[in-house]
């Protein structure tokens, strides 16, 4: 494999950091720390650094929680991608992971719904979701996507591509 070509592609697309593989909590933590150090050196405000970091954490933990909930945490399906790239004057944080085909429509619909919310509606939904009882077997509070939307400067973009008759590759990008 020619890593030089890969590196050139990364450079062209403004890629700052990329991880591909199965990620554990400690990897999420380490990349997060590296990301913050990197951004701190870019001379941007503390709030902007924290927004990029927060979106990264929510995306990464969402992926991990989903794979664990759907028992996809082992083997090839567990391999996921997270990227942080420059995007105009801001940043794009993206995640890509395997999902079950049957979940695809629901996830994409939920993202479209959140994208359509006005800032006031978003704040209200966030508060409602905060107050909603968490199911005993839930891995998160269902707040992750709303948290990403709160910190984003434009709509999230998702895409899906079928891997086989059971699995779909799901990509989600957020812009800060």
């Amino acid at each position: 494999m020619d890593l030089y070509n890969l590196r050139e592609q990364f450079a062209e697309s403004g890629m700052m950091m990329c991880f591909n593989g199965p990620f554990s909590h400690s990897i999420i933590e380490e990349i997060g720390t590296a990301l913050r150090n990197h951004l701190a050196a870019e001379n941007i405000g503390k709030a902007a650094v924290l927004d990029v970091f927060a979106v990264y954490i929510e995306l990464a933990q969402n992926v991990r929680n989903y794979l664990s909930l759907r028992e996809l945490g082992q083997g090839e399906a567990s391999s996921s991608i997270i990227t942080i790239a420059r995007w105009g004057d801001g940043y794009a944080v993206s995640s890509g992971n395997t999902i079950l085909k049957e979940d695809s429509a629901l996830i994409c619909r939920r993202i479209a719904e959140i994208n359509a919310l006005t800032p006031e509606e978003l704040k209200r939904q966030y508060k409602e979701q905060m107050r909603r009882e968490v199911q005993p077997d839930a891995l998160g509070a269902g707040l992750g996507l709303l948290e990403i939307a709160k910190r984003s400067s434009s709509a999230m973009v998702c895409s899906v591509r079928d891997i086989n008759d059971k699995h779909t590759f799901f990509s989600l990008a957020a812009f800060i």
Partner: peptide, 8 residues
């Protein structure tokens, strides 16, 4: 900083 599930 708190992630969303910590906020909950």
């Amino acid at each position: 900083y708190m992630n969303s599930s910590s906020i909950k």
